[in-house]
Design a protein around this nucleic acid. Sequence first.
RNA 1: GCCCGAGUGGCGGAAUUGGUAGACGCAGGGGAUUCAAAAUCCCCCGCCGAAAGGCUUGCCGGUUCGAGUCCGGCCUCGGGUACCA
Length: 872
Amino acid sequence: MLTFSMKNTHTNGHHLQPEKIMSRYNPVEIETKWQSAWDESGVFEAHPRPGCPKYYVLEMFPYPSGRIHMGHVRNYAMGDVVARYKSVTGHSVLHPMGWDAFGLPAENAAMEKGVHPGEWTYQNIDDMRAQLKPLGLSIDWSREFATCDPEYYGQQQSMFIDMMEKGLAYRRSATVNWDPVEETVLANEQVENGRGWRSGALVERRELTQWFFRISDFAEELLESIDELVDWPEKVRLMQRNWIGRSSGLQFRFRTVDAPVGFEHLEVFTTRPDTLFGASFAAVSFDHPLARLLESDPEVAAFNEECRRGAVSEEDIEKAEKTGFDTGIRVVHPFLDGVELPVFITNFVLMGYGTGAIFGCPAHDQRDLEFARKYGLGVVTVVCPPDGDPAAYEIGEEPYLGPGRMINSGFLNGLEIEDAKAEIIRKFEESGSGEGKVMYRLRDWGVSRQRYWGCPIPVIHCEDCGAVAEKKENLPVILPNDVRFDGRGNPLEKHASWRNVPCPACGRMARRETDTMDTFVDSSWYFVRFTAPRARTPTVREDVEYWMNVDQYIGGVEHAILHLLYSRFFTRAMHLTGHLPKSAGEPFTALFTQGMVCHETYKDGEGRWLSPEDVRPRTGGGLETREGDSVTVGPSVKMSKSKKNVIDPEDIIESFGADTARWFILSDSPPDRDVEWTTSGIEAASRHLQRVWRLVNSTVGQPDSTGSQASRDEENANLFKAMHRTIDSVTNDLESFSFNKSVAALYEFTSTLARSAADPASKAVAFRVLAQLMQPITPHLAEEIWEMAGGEGLVVSSPWPVADPDMLVEDTVVLPVQVNGKRRAEIRVAKGLERDEVEALVLELGPVRNALGGRNPKRLVVVPDRIVNVVV
RNA sequence: GCCCGAGUGGCGGAAUUGGUAGACGCAGGGGAUUCAAAAUCCCCCGCCGAAAGGCUUGCCGGUUCGAGUCCGGCCUCGGGUACCA
């Protein structure tokens, strides 16, 4: 393929090697060459380097689905930029890779394709590793592991036993989605409109005894420590705070009337004790012991049954219409003589929060107001807004939720809300029937899964000894291979020889726990394991102390709450069980959340999704199918199989090379926002990289330009000035995760270089800097041009260039001149020019004099070196 | 439902703490080169208007000499919602 430009052969052909004339930058060939060079040099293996600070950069490890997708490319390209940048700026870098290998899809594949989940998973890992390697990532592959390796999950089992001993793991009853046809527990994802996704049967809620981690004991600690996470996105910190959901309020006991024996009191929790005088009903969860007891009444039973319908997800519960059942029981208002409030069973009070019982004050709560309207309950306004008339204020259509003073509230009248809360809590505490209490939304972490493809919980149930931890010398408890997937229940339940084992305590025959662990457990400590991936203990003190914490963690914002919170809990639990030193509190010092990779969507005339491969440009504009039918272009959305708008990274790397893919995916959008993949964009990236190569290739070895020494000196000086400005921008942009801006600065510098009439020797200096600046983003091309421009050794191990501050200063500055806030002129002045001198210059300007018409300005705003505004 | 975020030309986006809106790239238009094309190089490019000028950062309102940026109220799209990972 001869594509070398004729212009170049005309002007300097006699200086070029013949093969240079014939060649073009061939990414695939050259990328393989440099990847081998890196492998041989071992530059990416993590070792403590004396005198260098350590830097641990980690991207969220992938689930081995079998194919890498553009989201992976983006994630790992970003992490690689950071790892490479940190490496050349004098850090000893740890940048590992592993596989989040347990999970549902492997079991689904087992059922659909009859392949064993383990076999399926390990094959996928091999495939994905082979797709990932051509990206040229600076990963220490010697530390790779999968969470389904017994060497990994065995250590996890060992920690589970330690957590049992410390009381951090315990058993209690909890609700699951139950598919009565498949006799299987369903994940929330497997429930569609209240029905099992395969069987179509109405899902039931079922109670099972399950294992939990006591994360709620750490609620306050996890909440307070968010303040330390200054290098996390503010939005993630806020989401975590809200998730933990600390609220203080009052817990107190109502006296009941006409209630069954044992329920002489009803304990409620409220965050608005100030509104007690406006209460018009009490409500308990359908799971509340009182509601359960009343189920002997068929009407109550039917109502509760109705409430228990549907999936267990919070979204489903909250979106369901609020309903109630009047039990006929009443509670006595503690401060209003003779006032009794009806007690309802409802579907919106959750047993898992507070006491599972509340009182409702319709005037100051949206949900309570809707409920009161529906069931004809009274509405008493007890908070008067600051601008309202305390004697006459009443709420209208909407509840009043703002600040104000108490009215219609006996001894609270006239108090501000916060003072009223304090006062009423004091009153309850005095009488001993209630107390101020802090409540958290955060619930304990249920880790039991009734599935095969997960880490077995290392426990044996003995009739005499109860739940007994497996002996550590028997770990790992390995998943049996000979299992059958018939779509019913957990295969481990049916595996007699695996299940029936002697009790570790008394030796009598007992039953092995068949629940496996939530895959979030696997991903809650893998980053610690990377510090000593082959150790015979979960961690090795020396390695953990050197490498932890993760300095920079990068991944999708979809993990903003659960995965990150569980990991934060785990480092604390691992400390309590002796697996992490005291210094390790937070797992991730800095966090970056990346956006998704999107692509346009296409549909044919019948509304069927079309893949980008199936459409082509139509002459005269628009798109058509291969058959020439018209195509409807839809919005750009996250790449997904269901919408067929997927571009396979492997195809892109094959046709354009990894550098082009990396350059493009980092170029257009800020990393924390979604990026749209476009064909024209990837082609532009490819064109640019070709241009860089051509530029270096055609310049190196040229004789000095003719022309005067003075003009050459000036050209050289200008080039170096641009070079230092670029070093400065790229450095700042990489440090601040503005990779798109780094790319823009590199585009600009390449254009400058292409136009520059500086000496080839000066250009060679600039090319070497260009190579160094491009290295984190397009490492293969960087090595190639580094070599062409006479760089020593590998660019991957050459120190990052430093901008000379003297080269960055400008001595003049352009001041925009506004009249009444609209730009009318601009003046170039010496930097730091005095205010009155600027004023004098500005008042002489034509547009300013016109606007003033001989009068004095009302005001003259001068922001030195920034802007001038003349107010007329 | 609840929590969090995003919205700027034809498109992706840029804009230190409120200070020239549209850097850089794509698409488009024009030119050079070529027998011709591809490739490459150069120039133009927010909208309306003949021009003067006016308008413009999802919508409505506010604060300010000055608002993409701050405040209040909406709209649309996206993420999470505890068993998808």
